[in-house]
Nucleic acid binder design. Structure first.
Lengths: 148, 148
DNA sequence: AATAGTTGATACTTATAGATATTAAAAAAG
DNA sequence: CTTTTTTAATATCTATAAGTATCAACTATT
């Protein structure tokens, strides 16, 4: 049996993912509805989770259960990621709401007629690299490090 | 009766402040212990609150009760303020923990032998100007706006 | 065919964060 | 000189967020 799938390959259906995480299927769907995770979806709309997805969800659970940060708190923190810097987008004048929004992460916003219209948020560095407060703080720190 | 005190003048003792805010004295002390507010203190250690303090606390309460962001969430969000940019501090090499900490705001950290040792956090722009998510996002946006 | 997943709605449980209350002894305020 | 504030500890209340369960009608997987 080959269990050496690439970490980013979506292989676990929702029931398996829930079992791996020791949570209910409904909780997984809830996290998704809140915009905390973006599972892979087959054309048939069925969700599949990768090892990376599982790790991300474990991270989110620690933030909720150990750090005692509410889901709305996490959403707000994720909304503070300067996505325009990470993606190279410069649509500020067009008023992309990601510049101003602070109630949910950019990937939970509408992407109509903007830089992200044809980008896949699941594959975006903004989504992939910034699932916890540590990396978000590091990004802000690094971006402002050498400013005048 | 002159009620036209400057907004930043600490005039209300804790009982009055609690009454103005319609909360208990204990809650005010709790917010302080959590590092959300820095009331003025007389040499006798008695707390006094200004109109600005009252407004700040009202803002915090809205974040808790309406936005449903937990206190730990608020503390983490406040820890993301790039204080070094706002104060002009450049002590990164000395390892000021404000550069890395993401569990509480900079003004709740120790200030021994660093740029902030003799600064009064209550009077600091980092504390005064960034009590809510909107201004924090705006700061991050403005700082990273014209970056390469 | 049998098993598992979909959306969407509703109802329910539970763990706990946020807030309050009550001590007490000492100091300060007015 | 009465009232209020202080710290610190403990105990309690309550509103609700997080999580679970169950329904139904439908679709996909194997």
């Amino acid at each position: 049996m080959d269990i050496n799938f690439p970490n980013n390959e979506p292989i676990f259906p929702i029931r398996t993912a829930a079992k791996l995480l020791n949570i209910s299927i409904h909780t997984l769907r809830m996290y998704e509805k809140e915009g905390l995770i973006i599972p892979y979806k087959r054309s048939s709309k069925q969700r599949l989770y990768s090892k990376d997805d599982i790790e991300r969800i474990e991270c989110i659970r620690r933030t909720i259960n150990e750090d005692k940060i509410s889901i709305n708190g996490i959403k707000t923190i994720l909304s503070l990621i300067p996505c325009w810097q990470i993606t190279g987008c410069n649509e500020r004048k067009n008023g992309c709401s990601a510049f101003y929004e602070h109630s949910k992460p950019c990937w939970a916003l509408k992407h109509e007629n903007n830089y992200c219209t044809n980008r896949d948020c699941r594959e975006c560095l903004v989504y992939k690299n910034y699932a916890n407060c540590s990396t978000i703080k590091a990004e802000i720190r690094d971006l402002t490090h050498n400013l005048p």
